[in-house]
């Protein structure tokens, strides 16, 4: 049996490594909830890092299902009868044995993911508003500006916001950009925007967005294409940035940017949900 302390430590380690972890619990057996449910811990990469559900074959079946769930970012929790997840995988003597014993049992899969990061290039009005809305959505926030007065605690009073005062290029190079990173490029000028974009465009960031007009976005893409940046990378860049909600103030622009980031993560159309209401004409 895994103790709460062991689970706690494993979670901490996995998230610190930037990997998701799934806690699988044997929740129901023979139609009844299980007391002191057996648990299995599975890492993103498929490694079983502790515990057992009561048999090696069952653990393997559960782990494979956990890994599949972790691949889909929208998944946080799922319940599955053992019988159902066996049929979707290959059958064998071992699987039949598991089915006989655990077929009707239900497993609970709970996924924890490392915190999402928001890297804001530029501490101006838009950058400040993006930090506020980002904090509301539980992002771990880093702000970069080469001007100390714009990467200051005065402008970003939230103590959880990490501030870097440095040249944009040097600052971005010092950060590890991973699949949980979201990069919002809103510096004071297009020259700095382009420097930032060039630095991150080939990194595995989940989202890269750059402020600017449609014309400016096209020009920068053209420059980069000429310099040999692959089309697949250029197409990933959200520029002009944000959903079209008619945003005008920095706060509204921040809302549009974060709405686009949520859309990227969760899926959705970005269209009004009420087809019959006053938003119908917007469609």
């Amino acid at each position: 049996m895994l103790s709460a302390t062991q689970i706690s430590l494993a979670l901490k380690q996995s998230l610190a490594d930037g990997e998701a972890m799934c806690i699988v619990s044997l929740m129901e057996m023979d139609g009844r909830p299980v007391a002191q449910a057996a648990r299995l811990l599975v890492r993103d990469g498929g490694a079983l890092i502790g515990g057992s559900l009561g048999g090696r074959a069952l653990d393997e079946i559960a782990a494979r299902h956990a890994v599949a769930l972790m691949k889909d970012e929208r998944q946080e929790i799922a319940v599955a009868p053992v019988g159902e997840i066996i049929t979707t995988l290959e059958n064998g003597i071992e699987a039949d044995r598991v089915k006989d014993r655990f077929g009707a049992a239900r497993l609970l899969f709970e996924i924890s993911r490392p915190p999402l990061e928001l890297i804001i290039c530029g501490g101006g009005h838009v950058g400040q508003a993006v930090a506020k809305v980002g904090a509301l959505l539980d992002f771990k926030i880093t702000v970069i500006d080469d001007r100390a007065e714009f990467s200051s605690r005065e402008k970003f009073p939230d103590p959880n916001v990490r501030l870097i005062t440095d040249d944009f290029l040097a600052a971005l190079r010092s950060l590890k950009i991973t699949p949980v990173s979201h990069v919002v490029i809103v510096t004071r000028g297009h020259r700095h925007d382009e420097i930032c974009l060039r630095e991150v465009i080939e990194k595995p960031a989940r989202y890269i967005g750059m402020i600017g007009s449609r014309r400016r976005a096209t020009t920068i893409r053209e420059h980069m294409r000429r310099d040999g940046v692959a089309g697949e990378h250029l197409r990933r860049v959200h520029s002009p940035i944000g959903l079209d909600i008619g945003a005008m103030t920095p706060e509204e622009i921040a809302l549009a940017i974060l709405a686009e980031i949520v859309l990227t993560r969760r899926g959705g159309s970005g269209a009004p949900k009420g087809a019959e209401g006053p938003m119908a004409r917007a469609r």
Binding site: A4, T5, I7, S8, L11, K12, L15, I23, S112
Partner: peptide, 11 residues
Amino acid sequence: LTQSEVYAEIT
């Protein structure tokens, strides 16, 4: 509540 918070509370 995150899982980390939950298991910390249980502990």
